[in-house]
Computed example of a mutant assay.
Amino acid sequence: MARVRLSVAERREELLRAAVEQIEARGVAAVRIADVASALGVSNALVLYHFSSKEQLVAAAFAHAAEADLAHLRRLLGRRSTAVRRLRAAVRWYAPTGQAKGWRLWIEGWAASLRDPELRRVAASLDQEWKAALTRVIAEGAEAGEFRCTDPAAAAWRLTAFLDGLAVQTTAYAGSLSRTAMLRWADAALDRELNLPEEGGSVGVSTSVGEDVAGDGVPAVG
C-alpha cells in the first residue's frame, strides 16, 4: 500500500514525534538519523531534507515535546481560581510521580546541552518560560493578599530547582521514593515559598484538580 502523501508540516510533525520516541529509547548520544528514518520507514535523505543535522533534529524534538507541556501548564495556571489552587495543581503536575520517561528526556537534554550549543539555547529558553509562568501567578497571588512572597521570581527558581533535583534522583534511582511522598514534599515546598501554614498542604485542592494532576502524570519534558 502506498504511503499517504503528507504536507510539509505534517511530515515535520511525524518526524519530531519519532525523534522524541527514539531519544527516549536510545538517549541523545546514541540516537541516529537512521533510527528515526527506520522507525517511519523513510529514507535518511528525507529526514535530512527537513532537519539538516542530527543536532538540529534533536533540538527541535526537545522543543516539540516541551511545548505541549508548556501549553498544559498555561491551562493549569490560567484557570479561574485562586492563585494557590492554580500553583498547587501546577507544582503537583510538574513533580515527578513515578512515570520516568518524560523526565528521562529532560535529563538527556540537560546532559547533551553541555556540548550542544543549539540544544542548550532551546533548553534554556523553555526553562525560562516555565519559571516566568510560575513567577506571574505567584506575583498575582501575593498582590491579591492570598499569601506573602516578596520575591516571586526567586520563589519560582527555588521551586523548579527542588523539583528538578527530585526528578533526577527518582529517575536515576527508581523506586527510591513513593509517589505519595513526592507529592507531599512538592506541597511542602510550595507552602514554604508562599509562607502558608504547613498543615495546609492539601487544603484548597479540589477533587477535580487532584484527579487532573494524577491523570496527567509528569511532563513529557520539564
Rank of each mutant, 00 (worst) to 15 (best):
A2R: 14
V4R: 14
R5H: 04
V8R: 08
V8P: 00
E10C: 07
E10L: 07
R11G: 04
E13L: 04
E14K: 01
A18Q: 05
V20G: 01
A25F: 09
A25V: 05
R26P: 08
R26S: 10
A29E: 07
A30D: 14
V31L: 11
I33Y: 07
A34Q: 10
V36W: 06
V36A: 00
L40W: 05
L40Y: 03
G41D: 04
V42Q: 14
N44E: 14
V47C: 02
Y49D: 04
K54F: 10
E55D: 09
Q56N: 11
L57C: 07
L57R: 10
A59R: 05
A61S: 13
A61M: 11
F62D: 03
A63R: 12
H64Y: 15
A66F: 09
A66W: 05
E67Q: 08
E67T: 08
L70R: 03
A71R: 09
H72G: 00
L73K: 04
R74F: 14
R75C: 03
L76I: 10
L76T: 00
L77H: 10
R79D: 13
R79W: 12
R79M: 09
R79A: 15
A83Q: 00
A89M: 07
A90T: 09
A90M: 05
R92G: 06
W93N: 09
W93I: 06
Y94F: 09
A95L: 02
P96A: 13
G98T: 04
G98A: 01
Q99R: 07
K101P: 04
G102N: 05
R104Y: 00
I107Q: 10
G109R: 05
A111R: 15
A111Y: 12
A111E: 12
D116R: 12
P117D: 05
L119H: 03
R120A: 11
V122P: 02
A123Y: 00
A124F: 01
S125A: 03
W130V: 12
W130G: 01
K131N: 00
A132S: 13
A133P: 04
L134I: 02
A139E: 15
G141E: 02
G141H: 10
A142D: 06
G145Q: 12
F147S: 01
D151M: 12
D151W: 15
D151H: 13
P152E: 11
A154K: 06
A155G: 01
T160S: 15
F162D: 00
L163D: 08
D164H: 14
T170A: 03
Y173E: 03
Y173N: 11
G175R: 06
G175T: 12
S176F: 09
S176G: 06
S176A: 13
L177H: 04
R179W: 08
R179P: 12
A181D: 13
L183V: 11
W185C: 02
A186E: 15
A186S: 12
D187A: 15
D187F: 11
D187H: 13
L190R: 08
L190G: 07
D191A: 09
D191L: 10
E193F: 14
N195V: 10
P197V: 15
E199Q: 14
G200P: 03
G200A: 15
S202D: 15
G204C: 04
G204A: 10
V205N: 13
S206F: 11
S206A: 13
V209A: 07
G217K: 07
V218S: 11
A220F: 15
V221C: 06
V221A: 01
